[in-house]
């Protein structure tokens, strides 16, 4: 059986449209697995929402409404964490537009970043980001790509102490500067680390993910689909029948289940512009998560394609 993301989605959309089995989206995805943030014990769903590229739509009202619809599906499906950055163009105002339209859902877990080399401008940038989102404060503030982290982290810890934010983190992507990330994780009392991890980019398994478990640091995973190229790479290949026992029905869910089944991972943040993909991503966070033996089998299968 060949099961592509597209044909599964068509079936999914068809079944969702049947009035006899119609029910609120909230009930459909209530089973998204939750993981505790080690530093507080607060639980968050393992599927979040990234905004790199997808939410950078300028002031286009049609595209802004599409993003707001994705956010609505995200919250209805039990999602909480939305992640963005001042580097992402107009993504921040787009999030703010969506949040205003959705009347600022209580369940929002806002994850932002400070991305500026001048340490003196960090607080000003955070305030500008907060104004774009329209929230009272951010839940999580991360130093983006380790830019001036030695200067920004003390400021963020100070803001956390004053309850101006709840958690502090650092980020990297695509396997860059992992040694420096390890150094920060070992020496600073951060709550979160964000990095790239997927079925083909598994360098983090060697040192960073074990270190996160050891130090009690929550892990956010970016680029779960390598910005879509990973799905395009495997989409024409047959999905293995044995993955059906986890509930994965397409490659996107296969790939997400691999990521969030790692015990160190707290939340993956796939980005999308489509409501059906958003629902599909959330669904991947439910059902059965692969055990270690199946994870090995998943890697072997994908590497053999």
């Amino acid at each position: 059986m060949r099961s592509t993301r597209r044909c599964v989605l068509q079936g999914f959309a068809l079944s969702a449209s049947l009035p006899l089995i119609g029910r609120p989206a909230r009930a459909q995805f209530a089973g998204v697995t939750r993981r505790a943030i080690p530093s507080s014990g607060e639980e968050i769903p393992v599927i979040g929402l990234g905004t790199w590229i997808t939410f950078n739509v300028g002031d286009d009202p049609v595209l802004q409404d599409e993003c707001a619809a994705v956010m609505a599906a995200f919250f209805e499906g039990g999602g909480r964490m939305i992640d963005s950055s001042p580097m992402y163009g107009s993504s921040q105002p787009t999030i703010g537009y969506g949040l205003q339209k959705l009347k600022y859902p209580d369940r929002l877990f806002s994850a932002e970043k400070v991305w500026i080399s001048d340490p003196a401008s960090g607080a000003e940038q955070i305030e500008a980001s907060r104004a774009y989102w329209g929230v009272k404060r951010f839940d999580l503030m991360q130093v983006h790509n380790l830019v001036s982290w030695e200067e920004h982290l003390p400021m963020l810890f100070d803001m956390k102490a004053k309850a101006q934010l709840r958690y502090v983190g650092i980020t990297t992507s695509e396997g860059r500067r992992h040694r420096e990330i390890e150094r920060v994780m070992s020496s600073e009392p951060i709550d979160f680390v964000q990095l790239t991890y997927n079925i083909l980019d598994r360098e983090a398994e060697e040192r960073i993910l074990p270190l996160a478990q050891e130090k009690g640091i929550a892990v956010i995973v970016n680029r779960p689909f390598r910005q879509g190229s990973l799905i395009r790479q495997v989409d024409d290949e047959p999905l293995p029948e044995w993955i059906a026992e986890t509930g994965a029905r397409n490659w996107a869910q296969f790939l997400l289940k691999f990521i969030v089944s790692h015990p160190a991972v707290t939340c993956a943040i796939p980005a999308t512009t489509r409501v059906d993909h958003m629902r599909e991503n959330l669904e991947a966070g439910g059902g059965i998560l692969p055990d270690e033996a199946m994870r090995r089998r998943m890697v072997d299968y994908v590497e053999a394609l």
Binding site: I53, N56, V57, D60, L63, G89
Partner: peptide, 11 residues
């Protein structure tokens, strides 16, 4: 690249 082709051409 910070935006999608669709966003660019709609712009």
């Amino acid at each position: 690249l910070m935006f999608s082709p669709r966003v660019y051409f709609r712009l």
